[in-house]
């Protein structure tokens, strides 16, 4: 179980760090293996900051993040990243534009699978690509700009699957994809649950959070305003902010005028 407890992030801003800005205030929730937790918030809500703290790209100012009861600060980075991985929003920014896209696999190999012979490694990559439903011929040995956004995001999920990951932080991973391909990437994420993976699904899109997750956390200005099973949050929202958000979502078959 991945657990956040009283996690707070305060940024020092201005000259000599004279002022402070609280990006995340006392956030606490947990992700169990085999479930998707969506973290819903608008821009500036601190949702990506939480993602980055879980990925240890940013240190929390206070509070603890633990995995199976162990404080993550006590775990070496390489060991931690073997278990916890991330995929980000912009598929094109996630790849170094001067190199081929499959270099993300090579980087993993260099660090984690140095001794593995080529043949075994190729088989491992093929298995990972198969899990994200990509054909090796279509994606290997290509530059990022030769692939579609959906393929690039799948490739990143495959990259994470090369490791023995237990938790995946998915930060707005489909918000830049086209409607006709995004749902398949989302389904893929949901399928990973069956492998026992815990997913932190960060999004601003309520419909997506509702579609995929078991539990939902609603974040507003750095604070958790609502946290519970997805059904409950969406059907009986308690906080005024959640209600307002739900009323603003454009629904395909209902017009705003008719709803109010």
């Amino acid at each position: 179980m991945l657990k956040l407890d009283g996690v707070t992030k305060v940024y020092r801003i201005g000259a000599f760090g004279g002022q402070t800005m609280t990006a995340v205030d006392d956030a606490g929730f947990e992700i169990k293996p085999g479930e998707v937790v969506s973290l819903i918030g608008e821009s500036g809500s601190g949702k990506s900051t939480i993602g980055k703290m879980v990925l240890r790209l940013l240190p929390p100012t206070s509070g603890t993040i633990s995995i199976d009861g162990r404080d993550v600060r006590g775990i070496g980075r390489r060991d931690y990243y073997r278990k916890v991985q991330g995929v980000f929003q912009d598929p094109f920014s996630s790849y170094n534009p001067v190199f081929k896209a499959d270099r993300v696999f090579a980087m993993i190999r260099e660090v984690y699978f140095r001794g593995v012979p080529d043949k075994e490694w190729t088989a491992k990559i093929e298995a990972a690509l198969d899990a994200v439903r990509l054909s090796p011929a279509a994606v290997l040995n290509k530059f990022p700009h030769q692939l579609s956004g959906g393929q690039l995001q799948r490739l990143l999920i495959a990259r994470a699957l090369l490791l023995d990951i237990e938790y995946l932080v998915a930060d707005e991973i489909i918000s830049m994809l086209d409607a006709s391909t995004r749902i398949d990437v989302l389904n893929l994420l949901a399928d990973l649950k069956q492998r026992g993976l815990g997913v932190l699904f960060i999004t601003h899109d309520l419909a997506l959070g509702n579609y995929i997750s078991e539990r939902t956390v609603v974040l507003h200005k750095g604070r958790i305003v609502e946290y519970g099973p997805t059904d409950a949050v969406f059907e009986q929202p308690e906080h005024a902010y959640t209600k307002k958000l739900l009323a603003s979502v454009p629904q395909l078959h209902t017009k705003w005028e008719d709803a109010s």
């Binding site: 980055k52 990925l55 790209l57 980075r77 390489r78 990243y81 991985q85 991330g86 980000f88 929003q89 912009d90 920014s93 996630s94 790849y95 170094n96 993300v104 980087m107 993993i108 260099e110 660090v111 984690y112 990143l156």
Partner: peptide
């Protein structure tokens, strides 16, 4: 600040 740098860090580089 680009994502590929974060991704490299996530690869333990």
């Amino acid at each position: 600040g680009r994502d590929f740098v974060d991704l490299a860090r996530l690869s333990g580089v």
